[in-house]
Design a binder for these strands. Structure first.
Length: 547
RNA sequence: GCGCGAGUAGCUCAGUUGGAUAGAGCGUCGGCCUCCGGAGCCGAAGGUCGUGGGUUCGAAUCCCGCCUCGCGCACCA
């Protein structure tokens, strides 16, 4: 049991002895201000009303019944309206560092997922152009969320869904066809809703080169297949450059060829929530919270997009995923109700909250104080590739993960590309490089550092206790970030941790001190290195040994 | 008009699920290099948490109204 766990149990015991109503669940928090100690609880204020007592007086009674020393505390004081503040016994705190250096990469992982399967779907770009910055944010978010779930005991698959069946694909083919026509000196007429980027011209040129039999671009099916294949390859290259790997690629077209779309429509039609009107087949999504009913099958006999969407999510359920998490741009938020409504209407006992959604707001790219809106290849938008080429993969990932998904994100290229202390990603990486530097200079293999026989009570300086406390908070941080599906918490934490590490490094030396003290500090340096590396790994950012 | 999201320092944003004197980065101003790497450290200035009510011991956080911005409101995806 960790120190706060012991204290929590002791608080429960004391409160129950005083006749507190069940259940007692004391919240232990880190106080904002260090002068309020190491831990604080509002237990007395929470219990005051149900127990009919005054908060401070109740706090006094609780403290009087605590065996402080047994749970690693050296003092408890009542403050303000009824807070109970605790000061930990430093040696009991630093003692916990042994577990950090022993667990290494496993430190901060948990088993709450119990090995159950979960699927995280993200990016899922139409193969109609290079990935844009919004996809980049999504790639960083989705990959980190997947890592967080994996770290907390879920068996995670990363999935990319290809909308390779819709109207957009027809527009793509027609756009390429128009550019092919241009190569045989006919004017290009890009269709309405078509694509104007420079990359369309490139694809047209390659098509002509590789299909001498169709120089005029008459074979629209062949053009479509070629263009989709080309763009999928390009997207894959970009994702690879970003360090994102998918376990599965699911093709929308397969839902049709497998007959699943027909099956789903048939089931929905039987399920009492479907009806015919104006020659179309409708689903009564209003029965599940939608603001109006939706068409499933159009008058022309084709399906609307949300039917294959429902079918797709049925496959996730049938493939055994206990959780399905979809990372999408907030401009798709209207699909949430529809997909869930469709799954409920099927009557397959799929939970109402399935799938879960993480929606993120837009990204604006800033340079020199102005918004950047275009790129050479894509024309009307900035690509992920542009960003990666300009500021590097680590900086792009870090910047995309600095903010909550719900916040608009302003990507400052100038800041991201500075190689100085102004750049937060280097600040965190540098802390790791410094810890690594200690071992390098000392000629010590960090993997051999253990707490065995080391007197950790020698770590008594304020900077050492503050750093140790932060390191010990890491597992709870990971749990919270995973539960909330919020990777930015990890980014914020790592920045704070790096600050504590830099401060400690600056004020205290590890090598060249008295041998016992050096050994203790090596354990702290090793633990810091481990947590920085584990945290950066969750974000998909490298932890360099030197910079 | 309806739905979703966001309004916190000059700018970009955090804020531990309701806690104490609201934080960080950038920008501005001022200090620190005989040192395991200065890609670092120390300090200063900077706030009506959009706004008006409400809930309670206690609100940036929860509820209601209003204002501003973004996104979505297709038999497109």
């Amino acid at each position: 049991m960790t120190v706060p766990d012991l204290l929590r149990a002791e608080l429960i015991r004391a409160a129950q002895e005083l006749g507190a109503p069940e259940p007692v669940d004391p919240v232990l928090e880190r106080p904002r201000d260090a002068s309020f100690g190491d831990w604080t609880t509002n237990l007395a204020m929470v219990l005051a009303r149900p127990m009919g007592r005054k908060p401070r007086e109740l706090a006094d009674a609780i403290v009087g019944r605590l065996a402080l020393h047994d749970v690693g505390m050296r003092d408890a004081r009542i403050a303000g309206p009824g807070f109970i503040n605790f000061w930990a016994e430093p040696a009991r705190v630093t003692e916990r560092l042994r577990a950090v250096v022993a667990d290494r990469a496993a430190y901060g992982t948990a088993g709450v997922g119990q090995g159950r399967p979960a699927v995280v779907e993200f990016v899922s770009a139409n193969p109609t152009g290079p990935l844009h910055v919004g996809h980049g944010r999504q790639a960083a978010l989705g990959d980190a969320i997947a890592a967080l779930l994996a770290a907390t005991g879920w068996r995670v698959a990363r999935e990319f869904y290809y909308n390779d069946a819709g109207v957009q694909i027809q527009n793509l083919a027609a756009s390429v066809q128009a550019r092919i026509a241009e190569t045989v000196s006919r004017p290009a007429v890009i269709p309405e809703g078509g694509y104007h980027g420079e990359y369309i011209r490139e694809i047209a040129e390659r098509y002509v080169a590789e299909h001498p039999g169709d120089r005029s671009g008459a074979d629209i099916d062949r053009i479509r297949e070629f263009a989709v294949a080309e763009l999928r390859r390009e997207q894959d290259r970009d994702l690879q450059a970003f360090g994102v790997r998918f376990d599965t690629y699911y093709l929308e077209t397969s839902l049709y060829t497998d007959g699943l779309v027909d099956e789903i429509v048939a089931t929905l039609a039987r399920a009492d929530h479907a009806y015919e009107r104006d020659g179309a087949l409708w689903l009564r999504t209003t029965a599940f919270g939608d603001d109006k009913d939706r068409v499933m099958r159009k008058r022309d006999g084709t399906f609307t997009y949300f039917v294959p969407d429902i079918a797709y999510h049925v496959t996730k359920w049938r493939r055994g995923y206990a959780r399905a998490i979809n990372v999408q741009g907030a401009d798709h938020h209207s699909t949430v109700t529809r997909v869930r409504a469709g799954l409920q209407a099927l009557g397959m006992d799929i939970p109402p909250g399935y799938p879960e959604y993480v929606l993120h707001q837009m990204v604006t790219v800033m340079r020199g104080g102005d918004e950047v809106k275009i790129s050479k290849r894509a024309g009307s938008y900035v690509t992920v590739r542009d960003l990666i080429d300009e500021v590097g993969r680590d900086a792009v990932r870090y910047f995309f993960l600095m903010r909550r998904g719900e916040s608009h994100l302003s990507f400052d290229i100038d800041l991201a590309r500075t190689q100085s202390d102004e750049n937060p990603v280097y600040y965190v990486q540098m802390a790791h490089a410094r810890m690594s530097g200690i071992f390098r200079v000392g000629g010590i293999d960090p993997a051999t550092v253990t707490g065995d026989g080391v007197d950790l009570s020698l770590l008594a300086a304020p900077e050492e206790l503050a750093l140790t406390n932060a390191l010990l908070d890491y597992p709870a941080l990971v749990l919270g970030a995973a539960e909330a599906l919020e990777p930015h918490r990890v980014t914020t934490y790592l920045h704070d941790l790096a600050e504590l590490a830099h401060r400690w490094y600056h004020r205290h030396h590890v090598l060249g001190e008295a041998p016992a003290l050096t050994r203790a500090r090596l354990v702290l340096a090793r633990a810091t290195q481990i947590v920085l590396r584990n945290g950066l790994a969750l974000l998909g950012i490298s932890a360099p040994e030197r910079m």
